[in-house]
Simulated scan of single mutants.
Amino acid sequence: MNLNLLIKIRHKKGFTQSCMAEKLSYKNKASYCLIENGKSKITIDLALKIKDILNLTEEEFKRIFFEDKVLETQTYKTYCI
């Protein structure tokens, strides 16, 4: 997830964390702040709500919520002795 881009777009569109919290029906901005700090998991439903609130393009939505790079993996080999 690209949190920096989410914050940048939110600022550009003039939304505060308090405003986002209100639109997402959170009790206060602290709950939304957890999202932007990467401390809260995002469901697809929540991502879609944020997309609608910020009126994100498909490209912005993908860049924020989905990795566009392949993560390096490691393969473990088993050796017979």
Rank of each mutant, 00 (worst) to 15 (best):
E59C: 11
S31T: 13
I53A: 00
K23Q: 15
D45V: 15
I64A: 02
Q74D: 11
S40Y: 15
I81T: 11
S40K: 15
K39W: 04
N2A: 04
R10T: 01
I64P: 00
F15N: 03
N37C: 12
G38L: 11
H11V: 13
L6G: 00
I7R: 10
D68N: 15
K23I: 03
E59N: 14
R10W: 04
I81K: 06
L46I: 12
L46M: 15
I53S: 01
K77H: 04
A30V: 13
Y32D: 06
Y79G: 01
M1T: 13
Q74S: 11
F61T: 08
E22V: 06
K27E: 15
S18H: 08
A47C: 08
E22I: 05
E72Q: 09
C19H: 07
A21L: 10
L46C: 07
V70S: 15
D52Y: 06
D52E: 11
T78G: 05
K51D: 01
M20P: 03
Q17G: 07
F61V: 04
I50A: 00
G14M: 00
E36F: 07
R10M: 04
L48R: 08
N4C: 03
F66Y: 15
G38M: 09
T78A: 10
N4R: 05
Y26W: 15
L54A: 03
K69R: 11
E58I: 13
R63C: 09
I7E: 04
L34R: 15
I44Q: 11
C80Y: 11
L24F: 08
C33P: 00
S40R: 14
L54I: 03
Y76N: 10
E72L: 06
H11F: 05
E58M: 13
N4E: 14
K39E: 13
N28F: 06
E22D: 14
T78M: 05
Y76M: 06
I64V: 09
R63P: 02
L24I: 07
D52W: 00
Q17E: 09
D68S: 14
E72R: 10
T57L: 14
I81V: 09
E67W: 03
I64Q: 01
L24M: 07
I53C: 04
K13F: 03
Y26F: 15
H11G: 04
I44Y: 14
R10L: 01
D68W: 08
E67S: 12
T75S: 13
K49N: 13
Q74H: 10
L56H: 03
E36V: 06
T43A: 09
I7H: 01
K49I: 07
V70H: 09
K23D: 05
L5W: 00
I53R: 03
K29Q: 14
K13A: 01
T43H: 12
K77W: 04
Y76F: 14
F65I: 07
K23L: 15
M1S: 11
F15Y: 11
E36N: 08
E59Q: 14
A47T: 05
T75P: 02
I50P: 03
T73M: 07
L24R: 05
E36K: 12
K29G: 00
L48H: 08
N28I: 10
L46W: 08
E72D: 14
F61E: 07
S31Y: 14
F61D: 06
L6N: 02
G14R: 08
Q74G: 01
A47K: 03
E67H: 09
T43I: 13
Q74L: 09
S40W: 14
A30F: 01
T57H: 15
L56K: 01
K27P: 08
